[in-house]
Design a protein around this nucleic acid. Sequence first.
DNA 1: CAGCATCCAATTGGATACTG
DNA 2: CAGTATCCAATTGGATGCTG
Lengths: 143, 143
Amino acid sequence: MYRYLMETMPRLRARGAADAYLRECASRKVLDAIANKWTCLLVDALQDGPVRFGALRRRLDGITQKSLTQTLRALERDGMVIRTVYPTIPPRVEYALTDLGHSLVTLMEGIRRWSEDHVSEIMAAREEFERRAAEEPRPVPPI
Amino acid sequence: MYRYLMETMPRLRARGAADAYLRECASRKVLDAIANKWTCLLVDALQDGPVRFGALRRRLDGITQKSLTQTLRALERDGMVIRTVYPTIPPRVEYALTDLGHSLVTLMEGIRRWSEDHVSEIMAAREEFERRAAEEPRPVPPI
DNA sequence: CAGCATCCAATTGGATACTG
DNA sequence: CAGTATCCAATTGGATGCTG
């Protein structure tokens, strides 16, 4: 019943009601939408002001035009990014964070920094894991 | 100056030249590994101590056994989670965060809470966006 | 410049069956 | 209980070509 209300009546979802652990809670969809590397890097890259499409494309090394467009469109749809078209020649489109988008900057920057700060530890753990996997058999739950 | 910063600021030294914006930087892989909904919910769910496989499965509503196993295995491989097998009947396996895993809790909990806190705004923006898309034509860069 | 459309390979995710 | 194995549908991602 409660879950039914959460899912069908968005306005009833107050601060304490949403629960991302629940499959059908809309906040689970939000979590799924923001928890990915391109969203993280984009929000981080936009924190200091509007940036043009081409600049973002160069900054997010390795992103395809398709992925960049899709991610920007999703952020725009969800109210975190605003797209501004300037009627100039050549065409110019700028992307900027909304207030909602800005409220996510600290977290996203934190995720990016954490990745950079702990890369050595993680790569070491990864190699250690692979090394062990080649030597010892993996502990299995006994019957 | 740079030397000074590197030697006096632990994070700067630890991060070194890592840059998640670069495609070939290992930190990009780390970012890709931790930025997803299951990792976020798992790290959050493990913050108060060891949890059994079945309990995690019930807590992360909607996750399949396959995805749970895969995500836990990846976190274990990367040194964020430790797996402990107890030789009991029935079998019992507990998962716990390592120190490295614990260092990620605040960020992951932040992401989850942000999703829950802003679900109304986002769903409203999404509906508004779809409504506009049906009415007005999308602004296109002029030639 | 900033896209959209399309095709296709590759990865992912769910469902199911089986096991120590 | 806590997995592994397998099959298959679905989603994703890259590459390419075209356009206002």
